[in-house]
């Protein structure tokens, strides 16, 4: 598909009282801090679904990412804890050197198993497990990065009927990761970085349908 032009999004199937979406997952690598700041700081405090995030980091890095982002956002940003149930208005970041996973009962799990795509945390691991847990009620977002992590995971989100959003590679610090995601999946939206948050807020309000 041509980038920057939204393809036909999924039809809104929600009736009264049921939400079309119940969670959002995001994956970023090189250049990710700025991208995450841009998106998360633009979300309203009452953002209706939880956000789960993998940002590639050095395994030795101090756990400052959540703290930094939390100061700049209206939603609450914190490091993910095992067994907790993600809540609306909150963003959960995979701790350095742990994979973040979603269980079938939608609680979070952490793991120190092998690196996937040379990464721990790996975006694919989060996306694949979240896709199974949330099915078509999931939004997956692939952001800037210099590797192909997230592509496989986005494909699984699509397979389960979720909505796939990719940062326009031309607006990415590192284009490879969003480019790889676009090449491997018929994604629903490819949009510039600054338009991702408005797009997602719109998706939750049933627009773009």
């Amino acid at each position: 598909m041509s980038d920057s032009v939204p393809s036909a999004g999924p039809l809104p199937r929600h009736g009264a009282g049921t939400m079309r979406y119940e969670a959002m997952v995001m994956g970023a690598s090189a250049g990710g801090l700025e991208a995450l700041q841009t998106i998360l700081s633009a979300l309203p405090a009452h953002f209706a679904i939880p956000v789960l995030i993998v940002q590639h980091l050095s395994p030795q890095s101090e756990n400052l990412l959540a703290e930094v982002l939390n100061r700049q956002c209206r939603i609450v940003v914190q490091e993910a804890e095992e067994k907790e149930t993600p809540r609306a208005g909150m963003a959960y970041i995979a701790p350095p050197d742990y994979h973040l996973m979603v269980e079938a009962d939608r609680t979070l799990s952490l793991s120190r198993e092998e690196r996937v795509n040379f990464s721990r945390p790996s975006i694919d691991v989060l996306f694949e497990t979240a896709a199974e847990a949330y099915g078509d009620k999931l939004i997956g977002v692939v952001l800037t990065g210099a590797n192909a992590d997230g592509s496989q995971g986005l494909r699984v989100i699509k397979k389960f009927g979720g909505t796939c959003v990719v940062q326009d590679p031309r607006t990415a610090v590192a284009a490879r990761m969003p480019q790889a995601a676009i090449e491997s999946t018929r994604v629903d939206y490819v949009v510039p970085l600054v338009e991702i948050a408005p797009l997602i807020v719109g998706l939750l309000e049933g627009k773009h349908g």
Binding site: M101, E103, A104, S109, S111, E113, E128, T129, E132, A133
Partner: peptide
Amino acid sequence: YSMAHLKRR
């Protein structure tokens, strides 16, 4: 055991 973990393995 945690199911998501087992399932991946």
